[in-house]
Design a protein around this nucleic acid. Sequence first.
DNA 1: CCGTTAACTTAACAGTGTTAAGCTCGTGGG
DNA 2: CCCACGAGCTTAACACTGTTAAGTTAACGG
Lengths: 216, 216
Amino acid sequence: MPVKEAEARRAADVEQAILEAARDILAVGGLDALSMRLVAERVGVSATAIYHYFENKDQLVRRVVEYGFQRFGAYLEEAAARHPKGSLERVRSLGEAYLQFALENQSYFRVLFSLHHGDPHRLDELPDGGGYGLLRRAVEEAMDAGAIRRANPDVMVMYLWSMTHGLLTISMACRIDSCPEFSADSLELSPLELFHAFDPYVREGISDGGEEGGGP
Amino acid sequence: MPVKEAEARRAADVEQAILEAARDILAVGGLDALSMRLVAERVGVSATAIYHYFENKDQLVRRVVEYGFQRFGAYLEEAAARHPKGSLERVRSLGEAYLQFALENQSYFRVLFSLHHGDPHRLDELPDGGGYGLLRRAVEEAMDAGAIRRANPDVMVMYLWSMTHGLLTISMACRIDSCPEFSADSLELSPLELFHAFDPYVREGISDGGEEGGGP
DNA sequence: CCGTTAACTTAACAGTGTTAAGCTCGTGGG
DNA sequence: CCCACGAGCTTAACACTGTTAAGTTAACGG
């Protein structure tokens, strides 16, 4: 029965091809650009054939998103691995990688964290918790190593994640440099540069009295 | 020519009615629920009549968003006014109001900060810079009063805004409590409670060595 | 050989944003 | 007075969307 296997193989290939076509379309034009008919055309089947592999468009997108988080997680992991365990650098590099990946794959990332999905992501359904687990481990290690103060790691992680994710989404949704109150001084800062500019506040807080240099 | 005036008046009323109908639909069902035909039906005109007042659907949404930011700005202003100028409380209450408004008007807010818009918001086109100006003033006053350390206000504002906005968007897009690495301890924290839990980090930083209690 | 099933097709439906053409009036100019 | 005009609106239609229903083809197990 190698014929059946070949069939099954081909079927799996078609499914894979659908996913890849959908991913490519999403990466370029976002959700608006993704239509069943376009995906079908690229794969070389009719639009309705997709419904034999995926329940509907939402499910197709969901699968692509899952795969996207996988790549995202791998990207983050690689960034973390470049710095020693327990170091503040490792935590920071996770944030940098978060920004970098999102900015390099904007349309794609928009879909991943699309705000207009009815049902929110369940992090336990995402590989590595959508990066949460990775960051949490790095934070806990840094706490153990004394690089950052000991506290509830989940709150700390949410704090760091919020700051990074917020910077990202704001950068993607707004042009702050067009604000009339915005002084021209910091006009040229890219999201990544802004992220670095946040560093002293993250480390020492915004309260008065912590004017330390911070250098080696 | 009271007739013409009455006509113009009525025309303005229709335009207003369209905007209000669109706003209501967006507030309940988000962008997906908004269709020209539905808006038209509610107003009592044909769908194509809308095109005499708005170039297309995008422009209609844009106008609703503009109005939304106006309400948003007013909400923030009110929150700020409840605390003395130059106080850290004023800055914090802006963040709280930001969260509160967004959580109470989720569908609406999703549209305001929708990630899948082609062109980003220009803050100078939004009333009060989308709240930027408000926060910036509060931060500068707090710097002058010595409540927070003196630094580039734009960077500081972006830092605070990012943290708040990120917390919000993550809360709306993910269920963190479903993460396998998430410890059950902080499971019950609402976005607003999390915001308050961030307070010590924002004020004193995450570095080790700043274990102060935090005053009365 | 026959029935079943996977994999796919075409046709169609109901919905979308948007355009084109035409209609009805009140108004201003000749 | 009348008539062209333009604002405000209509219906019809186009090209597109996701999705369903029904039918086709071919390989498989019994």
